[in-house]
Amino acid sequence: MRFIASSTAALLLAPLVAGAAWAADFPQRPVTIIVPAAAGGGGDTTTRILARGLEQELGQPVTIVNQGQGGGVVGLTSIVNAKPDGYTIGLLFPYAGYKFTGQADFSRDDFTPIANFNGDSSALVVGATSPFATLGEALEALKADPAAYKIHCSGGCGSVWDLPVAAMMMDYGIDIVSIGWIPGQGGATGLQELAAGGVDFQTVSLPEASALMQAGVVRPLAVLSPSAVPGFEDVPLAGDTVGHPVDGGTWRALGGPAGLDPDIVAIWEEATAKTVESADFRDAMETANFGVKWLGAEDLSALMAEHETATGRVMQALGYAN
C-alpha cells in the first residue's frame, strides 16, 4: 500500500513539477502582443517602444499585431480568446465604456493583468480668445448655464479624455447632461475647431495640444493630474481648484486572457518592469511625448476595477444605455 500511495502521489505531482519547469523556461519561442488600435497611434507607438526592451529581457522576438477594427473591440476580443499560455498577450487600455455604448461587455475578469507602463492625463483647454482665464471661472460658468457651452471630446465621446472631465464636473455640481459634448475624429481636428471658435472647450492630452499651445492658439486651463506633468509644469492642476486631487486620463497596460499561469505573469511583469526602468525606454517615451506610469499586476487589477466603477457612474449619468 505504501508503494501504491507513493506512486499515486508521484503521478499527481508530476504535472505540477513539469508545469513549473515549463514556466521557468518561458518563453521558448517568439511572443505576440495584440494592439487593439491602428498602426501609428498612441497605443501602437507606446507598445512598440516597450517591445524593443521586452525583446532584450525575454530573449525572444516580439511581434506586434494591430487589430483596431471596431474601435479596438476586435483586438480586445482576440486577447480574451487567446490561448492562456503567455505567448499571446495584448495591450489593455480604458475599455469599460464599450459596455455602455453596446459595443462589447469586457470586464476585469476577462483578462489577466500583467503591468501598466504608460499614463497620460486629460486636460481642459480653451482657445486663445476664450473669456475664461482659470478653471474656476469655467466651472462656475458651466454650473450656471451648462447648455450654453460645447465641449469637444477629441475622439468619440464617452472616452478617455472627456469622461474624467465630466466626472470632475459632476462632483462640482454641474449638470453634465445639458452640456453639448461634441465627438470628433481625434485631437488635431478638435483643436482646429476649438481655435476657430466652433466649441468652447476641448478635452485632450497636453502632448497633443502642445504645438498649438506653444503657438499661442490654445490655452490649457488645467490638467487632471495629482502632480505636475513633466514638460508642462506650468499648467495648473485641476485639484487646486476643486479642492482635492484629480487623476484622470488614459492608461496603457499589458494583459493576457483570463487564466494565465501566475508564474508566466511574473516573468512578463519582471521583463516589463526592467524595460520601464531602462533609460532607453524612458528617453524614447519622453521624445514621443508619452508619460511613463508603472503599476505591477496587483495594482493594475485594482486600477481596472476602479476604472469600471468610475466609467459606469459617468456613462449612466450621461444617459448611455447599459
Rank of each mutant, 00 (worst) to 15 (best):
I4Q: 04
L11H: 02
L11P: 06
G19M: 05
A24F: 00
D25Y: 00
P30G: 11
V31R: 13
I33F: 10
T47H: 10
A51Y: 09
L54W: 04
Q56I: 04
E57A: 12
V62C: 08
Q67E: 10
Q67P: 03
Q69G: 05
V73I: 10
G75P: 01
L76T: 01
T77D: 05
I79T: 07
I79W: 02
Y95A: 06
T101L: 00
T101E: 15
Q103E: 06
A104T: 03
D105C: 04
F106A: 02
F106G: 05
R108C: 02
R108N: 03
D110V: 01
A115P: 06
A115T: 11
S122I: 00
A128I: 03
S130C: 03
L135E: 09
G136V: 13
G136W: 04
A144P: 05
A147F: 01
S154L: 09
C157M: 11
V160W: 15
V160T: 15
W161V: 13
L163P: 06
P164T: 14
Y172R: 14
I174P: 14
G180Y: 08
G180F: 10
G186S: 05
G187H: 09
Q192R: 12
E193S: 11
E193G: 05
A195S: 13
G197V: 03
P207A: 06
V217T: 12
L221Y: 02
A222R: 09
G231L: 03
D234A: 11
G243T: 05
G249I: 12
T250W: 03
G256E: 04
A258R: 15
G259W: 01
T272P: 07
T275M: 01
F281W: 12
A284D: 15
E286L: 00
H307M: 14
G312R: 15
R313M: 10
